[in-house]
């Protein structure tokens, strides 16, 4: 069997927080990511959902090499991507890139589109001006812009166009994996639709693999092959998009889905939906949390395990 494109094994990230006491007393550990394992296949869109602070970005930053894992292993094509034996920044840049939430903040206002796209190419040993220009031209067309746009500066573009430039910059080195952290949440509905269409087209055309983080579950349902539901730094449910959206098992997943302000649902059910009735039971084991109360981030979560409940469907239950 060939190694998966990306493999994350038992990732933990803890942040030391000073308690504010005299002489640094009361230094505590904030448990941000508490043992995450998953893999990403070539051409797949895997989404991570969960509430603010559950550790989504910290997980993504670890994969990008921007956050040192406290424990655990991240492998790209079987080789370590972070920690000891990891490749340098340059090699990693060809494996994983990121599209940021805010297209305004992620572009240098004083750099023309051409220079912000050319810089990574130069760093990676492209010297011929004609080849650099050629690649930039192809990439701008890929994201729905024209070669003439290369001479413009970020402020000369609309929000949607800027996000297209952000995508072009992430793709210019032809990475296999693109991390999308809330790629459309800063955009207006009409522009959001264009960018979602573009991301799906590019995924198909270039065979990209996406690791997407999003608060918007209707976008997640639309774009994902598989979904990870995260709560307090752990995966509480994992499955194909159909399992997660049609047969959610964990009470927290059910709460999230019930909370989506969906027009159809709102118009067809008299009351705003609450959630969580008839949560299924699995072998008489309970859930460690239903996600309705804020966790104590300074204590590790109670022992539990991800249990298979279907071919590609897992849910976290308290340890037997």
């Amino acid at each position: 069997m060939t190694a998966p494109l990306l493999q994350v094994d038992d990732l933990h990230v803890r942040f030391p927080i000073s308690g504010g006491g005299l002489l640094g007393r009361g230094r505590r550990m904030l448990h941000a990511v508490n043992g995450i394992s998953f893999s990403l296949a070539k051409g797949e869109c895997l989404s991570i959902v969960g509430e603010s602070g559950c550790g989504k970005s910290t997980t993504a930053l670890s994969i990008l090499g921007l956050q040192e894992p406290t424990e655990g292993m991240i492998r790209y094509r079987g080789l370590p991507l972070a920690g000891p034996g990891a490749p340098g920044r340059m090699q990693r840049a060809k494996a994983v890139q990121m599209v940021f939430q805010d297209p305004y903040a992620s572009l240098n206002p004083r750099q023309s589109v051409r220079s912000s796209l050319a810089a990574p190419l130069r760093l990676h040993g492209f010297t011929a001006g004609s080849e650099i220009d050629g690649r930039i031209e192809v990439m701008l067309k890929n994201v729905g812009l024209t070669p003439e746009h290369a001479n413009r500066y970020p402020h000369e573009f609309s929000g949607g166009q800027r996000q297209r430039i952000g995508i072009a910059r992430a793709l210019i080195l032809e990475p296999e994996i693109v991390v999308l952290d809330e790629p459309v949440s800063a955009l207006d509905v009409s522009i959001r639709a264009q960018i979602i269409n573009l991301l799906l087209d590019l995924q198909e055309k270039l065979g990209l693999s996406y690791l997407m983080i999003s608060h918007d579950l209707s976008v997640v349902e639309h774009m994902s092959d598989r979904v990870l539901v995260m709560y307090f730094g752990q995966i509480v449910e994992e499955g194909g998009w159909r399992e997660i959206f049609e047969a959610p098992a964990h009470p927290y997943t059910r709460r999230l889905i019930a909370a989506i302000p969906d027009p159809e649902k709102a118009l067809n059910t008299a009351e705003l939906q609450d959630c969580v009735s008839d949560v299924p039971q699995f072998a008489g084991r309970s859930f460690i949390s239903d996600g309705s109360t804020a966790p104590d981030v300074f204590t590790a979560p109670a022992p539990s395990e991800l249990v298979e409940i279907g071919a590609s469907h897992k849910v976290r239950l308290a340890s037997a």
Partner: peptide, 20 residues
């Protein structure tokens, strides 16, 4: 332009409408 919950399982994934 909005992805609608449940529409993918009913109709498959369709392109979102581009208002422009």
């Amino acid at each position: 332009a909005l992805p609608r919950l449940g529409s993918r399982s009913q109709h498959g994934r369709q392109r979102l409408v581009d208002i422009d």
